[in-house]
Design a protein around this nucleic acid. Structure first.
Lengths: 127, 127
DNA sequence: TTGCTCCTCACGTCACGTGAGGTGGC
DNA sequence: TTGCTCCTCACGTCACGTGAGGTGGC
């Protein structure tokens, strides 16, 4: 079991952030007295939350996303619904990756031009 | 020249969003009377703003990013500063892409398992 | 005159940041 | 007793959303 401070430091977020996710019912830690204690499952969910947020999803979307992981594989209709959500999520992420790659190419191009400029205008003061 | 409504529809944002970027001094459209009119330069900046935001940057960061595009290539020290910023931005984006690829692989794995489950449990009702 | 798009406040929302003030166990 | 970490309000902030009420030109 981990304390909120340990988790916060390990994941590079504030304790406020972790408590906020609890208020949104994304994580439900155990209590000993008034203090919170987190299990391995809570840590796994926090990993998924932070990664999803880093990809630009809202906490409502993350909530649905977490449900995909918890999905009970009993009912076929449920699984068909899951498949639809997965496909749409995958398309969204692929579009985002295309944006990201385009921006990276542009930045690298600007970088190359800058390096070339510096090479050309480098004043050999030390000689 | 474009009106704010034309730009909003073309870029899939609200007019409120475009006016907000003006308040943050990211875009400075011309005025005819009280109405705003946007040039090709304004459109180009809006493209960069929206793409950067989609990658998770704040408007303050976008403001710096736009400055990289406008950077006057006259002074060497300025260019060295630009190079530092470019390298840090490139590293950030590469980390983000790693996160994105990891998530995509996981979603595709869950998808494959779901498809397999549906294949195995498919009830041949129509026969 | 009626529609349409434009405008300026201004309050609401989401995801936290940031103190304020207080409690519990080594 | 002093430190440290934990706690619960509660107001502030950022990037807009969402009306409220009003103006201008085809």
């Amino acid at each position: 079991l981990w304390t909120i401070g340990e988790l916060a430091e390990e994941f590079g977020v504030t304790t406020r952030t972790i408590r906020f996710y609890e208020a949104k019912q994304l994580i439900t830690p155990a209590r000993k007295g008034v203090a919170r204690f987190y299990t391995r499952r809570d840590r796994a969910r926090l990993t998924l939350i932070l990664r999803s947020k880093n990809l630009g999803f809202t906490l409502d979307e993350v909530s649905e996303y977490l449900a995909l992981y918890d999905a009970d594989p009993t009912h076929v209709t449920q699984q068909r619904h899951l498949l639809t959500k997965l496909d749409s999520q995958i398309l969204t992420l692929q579009a985002k990756r295309a944006d990201l790659d385009r921006t990276l190419r542009e930045l690298k191009s600007i970088r190359a031009q800058t390096v070339e400029f510096l090479r050309a205008n480098d004043e050999p003061k030390g000689e």
